[in-house]
């Protein structure tokens, strides 16, 4: 798992991941790129990350992937990423395509629901919490 200040260099990351697994005998490599769209007058998105819980979340996914003979990788931005750049990339490598296709779906969806990352719209230099697009994590409301 890789965290970067600002937008991601997606070509470098995907190229390097490809090189890293060149000799691993995986038959399928499925990358996912999240690109920031220009909408609602935003200049950028901005992110806060709680790294200790994110690492544990990612390690649990690495275990789940391993049980199916696969591996997962991801990279995310911290701070501002302007529109038309990428703030999130992930990938699955697996021996055959079926597992990789299923895993990338499950992994990206659970990432959206449970990775401890907070998103803000950046408008006129102000950070505004993207409350209406955010999801309460599993187990939310314990202290209510």
């Amino acid at each position: 798992m890789e965290l970067y200040q600002g937008p991601l260099d997606t070509k470098e990351i995907f190229g390097r991941w490809l090189d890293e697994e060149a000799g691993s005998n995986y038959g399928a490599y499925i990358p996912f790129v999240g690109t920031i769209r220009a909408e609602d007058g935003i200049e950028a998105l901005s992110f806060d990350i709680y790294e200790p819980v994110l690492r544990r979340w990612f390690e649990s996914w690495q275990e789940r992937a391993k049980e199916r003979g696969a591996i997962v990788k991801m990279a995310h931005s911290i701070g501002d990423a302007p529109v038309h750049t990428s703030s999130y990339v992930s990938a699955v490598f697996s021996p055959k395509r079926r597992v990789a296709l299923e895993l990338i779906d499950e992994f990206v969806e659970d990432f959206k629901a449970n990775a401890p990352i907070w998103k803000y719209d950046v408008k006129d230099g102000q950070r505004i919490y993207a409350e209406d697009r955010s999801t309460a994590m599993d187990g939310a409301g314990l202290l209510a």
Partner: peptide
């Protein structure tokens, strides 16, 4: 996920609001 979780001196509790990565 358990409200009856005991706490001991020096524990750190973290409150995590709704998330939206990506």
């Amino acid at each position: 996920s358990e409200l009856d979780t005991p706490l001991k001196d020096g524990d750190r509790v973290t409150i995590l609001p709704p998330v939206c990565g990506g």
